[in-house]
Simulated assay, not measured.
Amino acid sequence: MNFTESEERRALRAAVAQLGARYGFGYANAKAREHQPLSELWEEAGKLGYLGVNLPEEYGGGGAGIYDLALVQEELSAAGCGLLMMVVSPAICGTVIARFGTEEQRRRWLPGLADGSSIMAFGITEPDAGSNSHRITTTARRDGADWLLTGRKVFISGVDQASHVLIVSRTEDARTGKLKPVLFAVPTDAPGFEYRPIGMDVTMPDRQFALFLDDVRLPAEALVGEEDAALAQLFAGLNPERILASAFAVGIGRYALDASVRYAKERRVFRDAPIGAHQGVAHPLAQIRIELELARLMMQKAAVLCDEGEEMGAAEAANMAKYAAAEASIRAVDQAVQTHGGNGLASEYGLGSLLSAARVSRIAPVSREMILNFVAQFSLDLPKSY
C-alpha cells in the first residue's frame, strides 16, 4: 500500500477542493436551514465528472474506484459542503448496478448516476427492523410477468430528489418457504408508492422520508441483479456506503478543525498572545488532528481493499473506518465550539448547526453498537451477541 497518492489523485483533490471553496459552508448551511438540497453544487460536480468517478467508463463514469469517490466526498465535506446523496446514488446504487445489473440496466441507469442528471435513493431501514435487516418485511410477490411490492421503509434520504429508489425487499423461496432478499428499482411516481417527510431536528440539506408501498406494480426488469443472489449484491453496496460515510465525517472533522485553528490564531484574550498559544487550546486540537488522520488512514485502507475486491477485509476496515471517523468528527466539532467559546454557538460562525449533523454519523448508516458487534464477532471471533 502506497501512502503517497498518485499525481492524478492529488490533482483531483485540488480540483475538488477548489470547487468546494466556491460554494462552501455558507452556501450549504443556508440551504440546510431551508431543507433544500445542494442542487447547484450537485449539478456542477456531475458535469465535471466527480459524482461518477467510480463508475465504468463505458457507461459515462471515470473508470476509477471507491477510493477516488471517497476523495471527492472528503474534499467537498472539508470545504463545508459535503453531498450526502453521493453516499447513496453513485456509491451504493451505482456500485450494485455496475456489478450485478443487466447490460440493459447498466446502460439505462449508470450514465445518469455518473453525471448527476439522475439520482437513485436507497431503501433498506424499516420501522420494525431497525439495524436488523433480517427482519425486513417489505415483500414482493409475482403477478404474471410483473411483481407486486408491499411494505414500509423509514429514514430514507433524498427521496424527493430521486427518480427511483433501490428498495431492499424479500420474496418467498418456493423450496424453503423462507423469505430471501431481493432488490428492485422503484419509480418514485409509481402508483401505490407514497413518501412523507420525517420531521428532524438536524440541520441538513437532505430530508429524510418514510415510504409506503401498497401493491406497487413493477415490471420484471425492475429486479436488479439475480433473484437468488441479492444478499451478496446488498453487501456489495454496503462497504462503499460505509467508506463514503467515513469520508463525509472526516471532511466535517477537517472543516471544524480548520475553523478552530484559524480562530485560535486570531483570537487574543490573555498576555496579548493568540489563544492557540495556550496548551489548553492547542493540545485538544492537536489530538483531534491525530484522530482524524487515523480515521482517514483506515478509510483509505478500506477503499483500497474494496477496489481490489477483498470483500471481507474491506468490510472489517470499512466498519472500523466509519466508527473512527464518526468519533473523530464529533470530537472535532465539539472542540470547535469550545475553542470559539460563545461564538461557537453564534449563527455567524455556524458551528452550532454542525453539532447535530456530526452526531448523525454515530448512528447512520450503521450504528456504533452494530459496528462493535461486527468487530467482536468477525475480528475477535467472539460469540454472536445479538
Rank of each mutant, 00 (worst) to 15 (best):
G144N: 09
G158C: 09
D215G: 09
P284L: 04
G352Q: 08
E266S: 15
E226W: 00
G352H: 08
G313L: 05
A162F: 14
M299I: 07
D115L: 11
Q161L: 14
E369T: 00
F212I: 02
S89T: 07
G46S: 04
F100R: 03
Q105G: 01
A145W: 05
V216E: 10
D68R: 00
G62C: 06
L382P: 02
A324G: 12
A30S: 06
C81T: 02
A315Y: 06
E369D: 10
K265P: 00
P365A: 01
N132E: 10
S39G: 09
M200F: 03
K31W: 00
D201N: 11
A28D: 01
I97W: 08
G112T: 11
R106S: 03
Y386Q: 10
S379D: 14
E172R: 15
R13C: 08
G123P: 07
Y255W: 14
G342Y: 09
I119G: 01
D115S: 05
G177W: 09
L382T: 05
D115C: 09
L231Q: 10
T4D: 10
I288N: 08
T176P: 03
A336S: 14
R207A: 12
L84N: 05
I119V: 15
L148D: 09
W42A: 08
A79R: 01
L285I: 11
N319Y: 10
I252N: 07
R196H: 13
G177H: 05
E43V: 10
E58S: 14
E40S: 12
A17S: 15
Q233E: 12
C93L: 02
A129K: 07
D272F: 14
R33W: 07
S329W: 10
D143N: 13
G63N: 06
G101S: 01
T95K: 11
R242V: 02
Y263I: 13
V72L: 08
N54V: 03
T138I: 11
R359Q: 07
E369L: 00
L213R: 08
Q338D: 11
F212W: 01
G276M: 13
A45E: 07
G82I: 06
L380G: 01
G158H: 10
M1Q: 00
R135S: 08
A91W: 09
G309A: 08
D334V: 15
A245V: 09
I243S: 08
L382R: 15
S117G: 10
Q338G: 02
R22P: 00
G350A: 02
I330H: 03
A321H: 08
R152L: 12
F100L: 00
A190M: 01
Y59D: 03
V269Q: 09
G46Y: 11
A91H: 04
Q161M: 15
Q300L: 06
G63M: 07
Y349Q: 00
C93H: 03
Q105N: 02
H164Q: 15
L285R: 13
V333T: 13
S246A: 15
V186L: 09
A121C: 04
Y50H: 04
L238T: 13
K31E: 11
L355W: 05
D189M: 01
K180H: 07
A15P: 02
P191S: 03
A64C: 05
E310T: 00
M370Y: 08
A114W: 03
T339I: 11
A332V: 10
R296A: 01
A232I: 06
A17K: 14
E104S: 11
L166G: 13
G280T: 13
N373F: 07
E369C: 00
G144S: 11
Q287M: 14
G225I: 01
D189K: 09
D381G: 06
